[in-house]
């Protein structure tokens, strides 16, 4: 018996004697990270040099509004402002004309009170990290999408475009000043979430979206910045962009 054989026998015993451990049961508990739990001062101290600056940044005034801006369906001043931002900032970011911009009604998470608008207000308005994307939609697909938002009691649409909701369907659809043409192609700005078929907008799902990683929140901040530099408030008028037909 040579040394190698002995070594193999030794290794065989070593391996065969090794104990392994197998999971046999698991108990789950999901903890809510609740304010009732005490804070760890080590972490509070770690954050302190950063959080002071963050608070100052959140309190920075970036614009103003002369009216309380509420979330309403089918149309609101707040929604109009956000849809205009989608259209105009998409045009700037993607460097091409954008026919129409939309705002997912469920994505408006706060309201703006009359007076100064702070950066913190915009984080509350848009806490998600959704991005502005554009898609090239054939008129018939755009029409399906507008039927969809009409059935959801109306979502904000950008200036120059409008629709009337009758029995949960859209009619008299105007895009960028002209009646919708089913055979035309439109450049449409939406959130990446909606463009990917979110909120049951399944007609958009298969259509490629151009995405430059431009956060809707950043678009809002930049759009307000543009208006403020022109001395304009962010509020506006109700314009019957989305309205419900008298039946």
């Amino acid at each position: 018996m040579n040394r190698n054989t002995l070594l193999y026998i030794f290794l065989f015993f070593l391996v065969s004697c090794t104990t392994t451990y197998q999971p046999k049961s698991m108990n789950y508990q999901g903890y809510s990270v609740s304010p009732k739990i005490k804070s760890d001062t080590a972490l509070t101290n770690l954050l302190q040099p950063y959080s002071g600056e963050v608070q100052r940044m959140m309190q920075k005034v970036i614009g103003f509004t002369n009216s309380n801006m509420y979330r309403r369906q089918p149309e609101s001043i707040l929604g109009n402002f956000m849809a205009d931002c989608m259209q105009q900032m998409a045009a700037v970011k993607f460097g091409k004309p954008v026919d129409v911009g939309f705002m997912n009604n469920g994505g408006i998470r706060a309201e703006l009170q009359k007076g100064n608008i702070t950066l913190g207000n915009i984080y509350e308005l848009m806490p998600f990290d959704n991005m502005v994307v554009i898609q090239e939609l054939k008129g018939d697909v755009l029409e399906q999408f507008i039927h969809h938002i009409a059935a959801d009691r109306g979502w904000p649409i950008s200036k120059g475009s409008s629709y009337v909701i009758r029995s949960g369907k859209a009619e008299q659809i105007i895009i960028n000043g002209k009646p919708l043409n089913r055979d035309a192609t439109y450049v449409v700005a939406n959130s990446d979430y909606i463009a990917a078929g979110g909120s049951n907008a399944s007609m958009l799902k298969a259509i490629p979206a151009e995405n430059k990683g431009y956060l809707m929140r950043d678009a809002l901040v930049e759009y307000i910045g543009l208006m403020t530099r022109q001395g304009k408030p962010v509020d506006g008028q109700l314009e019957n962009r989305a309205s419900i037909a008298n039946e």
Binding site: S16, T19, T20, Y21, Q22, P23, K24, M26, N27, Y31
Partner: peptide, 24 residues
Amino acid sequence: GRLDYIFSSNKRKNLSKAHTVIVT
């Protein structure tokens, strides 16, 4: 999330056997 697993010990020969885990 907190998952509290309990393991049992086995000889290596059982290693390849698929095991089940009771979840509570």
